[in-house]
């Protein structure tokens, strides 16, 4: 859906999506890194389980909700990637204790 421009010279950052390593660039948000990865990163909604991807990328729509380092319901578009970050695609509601 998206590709990176060749002029991007930022250093790579390795993050994990459901256990699989992907390469992001320093300064990417979690949502941007997920969309750039080319993987199926659709979450499912808490209400009907419908698949969704980020819609606004500016902290407004909450369609980028994702589990980051064990904490659910994070807005992926507001969190920058960090080396070794563990990301889980959130299916449905946030679970108690996560």
């Amino acid at each position: 859906m998206f590709k990176r421009s060749e002029q991007d010279k930022r250093p790579p950052v390795e993050i994990f999506v459901d256990g699989t390593a992907i390469t992001a660039q320093q300064g990417d948000t979690v949502s941007a890194a997920l969309l750039a990865s080319g993987r199926d990163v659709r979450r499912s909604t808490a209400v009907s389980g419908a698949p969704r991807l980020p819609y606004c990328m500016m902290g407004v729509c909450f369609d980028c909700l994702v589990t980051i380092d064990g904490v659910g319901n994070r807005q992926g578009c507001l969190v920058p990637v960090a080396e070794g970050m563990q990301i889980e695609i959130q299916k449905g509601k946030r679970e108690i204790g996560r």
Binding site: F2, D8, A32, M57
Partner: peptide
């Protein structure tokens, strides 16, 4: 936003 902050394009 993706274009400006991550040089990502459709």
């Amino acid at each position: 936003t993706m274009l400006k902050s991550s040089a990502l394009v459709p």
